[in-house]
Nucleic acid binder design. Structure first.
Lengths: 197, 197
DNA sequence: GCTCAAGTAGACAGATCGTTCTATCTCGCG
DNA sequence: CGCGAGATAGAACGATCTGTCTACTTGAGC
């Protein structure tokens, strides 16, 4: 990766995340990166490609975070807690502007658009990895628990940049602990350890 | 309210919600409403005013929904369930594109912008009304429970337009029932977890 | 009958958008 | 040395954006 391309992607990521995808034009990006227009179009054939590259970079960063959280913890439950903690850390970080993917999809509702598809891909991966972690945690019904986790995560990310992050993180943490107790308290009173529907 | 203004607001609401705030231009709105540019600017001095009017109308519609849910139910818990059900109904509705306010704030991150402030106002009202309802439901700690409810709601609204709405609604419903059982199960039971801080 | 607000129709300004283009320069490498 | 890739610099294109403007029409109320 050339240095100009790296600066370009860094500037694009910062500006797109902070101000929105449609609000930031090509001129802003190249001015911030200290690069000319021709250089940008050499590396990214169109703005859409730059947008996808921004989301792909964010996706890879999150995957790396989750991977370290998963490998550094023995139990699945602690890995889930570590993932939750890294989410809370992000929310508490100054300049937090919500989930880059949810913000992006709000601007690109067309499911056929590459940006929208990049968001769906990331979210499917995240749901899968949380499901796997909860299954390792001994969750009898990992799929609904994972959906619950992701729903709470999405809500925390959405609210975290609109109000004081501290209570948001605390609410999120409590919610995650509640999910991890699914194992002990069945959601629907079954007869035995019967399979949830 | 003149009829031209009503058509303008209806077209603006539909287009802004479906396609995004920056993506839809003035020309699209006036063409859809069958109105000329001068008429639009007679009623709304700027596009920002039109955006705020769109959000204000959405806010009023939701307030009306919540008000009927609150007055038609005897207990606070059932009122909360009714509010949750109206949220789930919205998610299941064809053409659902997520929360109009969260989508709007994704495009207007500047807290000083009127659009952003309209979102904050709506969300504060909603949190307050849910808190009140949960207090009536006998919740010993209504504030954290309401934050939990809103967090779940935000996540459900975000995911509801990205995947199959049915499991999203079911997960949301289960989560709300869990919140309503706060009354019976103590909130903070953790003894010791590995170095969370 | 007159007035005035509200609406139609469309040209226009000024800015910004994404994109393409030519021309020049630098520099590593064969 | 010579070449070509990558970068600079900046003009220019067509499209679109918000917002303003003039000119004409309609219709209800004093």
């Amino acid at each position: 990766m050339s240095e100009a391309r790296a600066r370009l992607l860094a500037s694009a990521s910062r500006l797109f995340y902070a101000e929105g995808l449609h609000s930031v034009g090509i001129d802003r990006v190249i001015a911030d990166a200290g690069v000319t227009r021709a250089t940008l179009y050499r590396h990214f054939p169109s703005k859409d490609d730059l947008l996808v590259a921004y989301l792909t970079a964010a996706d890879q960063a999150i995957r790396a975070d989750v991977e370290t959280a998963r490998t550094s913890k023995a139990s699945g439950a602690d890995a889930v807690r570590a993932v939750a903690e890294s989410i809370a850390d992000g929310i508490r970080t100054p300049g937090f502007r919500g989930c880059a993917f949810l913000n992006a999809v709000a601007e690109y509702p067309d499911p056929a658009h590459p940006v929208h598809q990049a968001v769906l891909t990331h979210r499917q991966w995240f749901l899968d990895v949380v499901t796997e972690l909860l299954a390792q945690a001994g969750e009898t019904a990992p799929e609904p628990a994972a959906r619950h986790f992701v729903m709470l995560r999405d809500g925390a990310m959405a609210a975290g940049c609109l109000t004081d992050p501290a209570p948001v993180c605390e609410t999120f943490r409590l919610g995650v602990e509640g999910i991890l107790r699914y194992r002990d308290t069945p959601v629907v009173p079954p007869k035995k350890t019967g399979g949830a529907s």
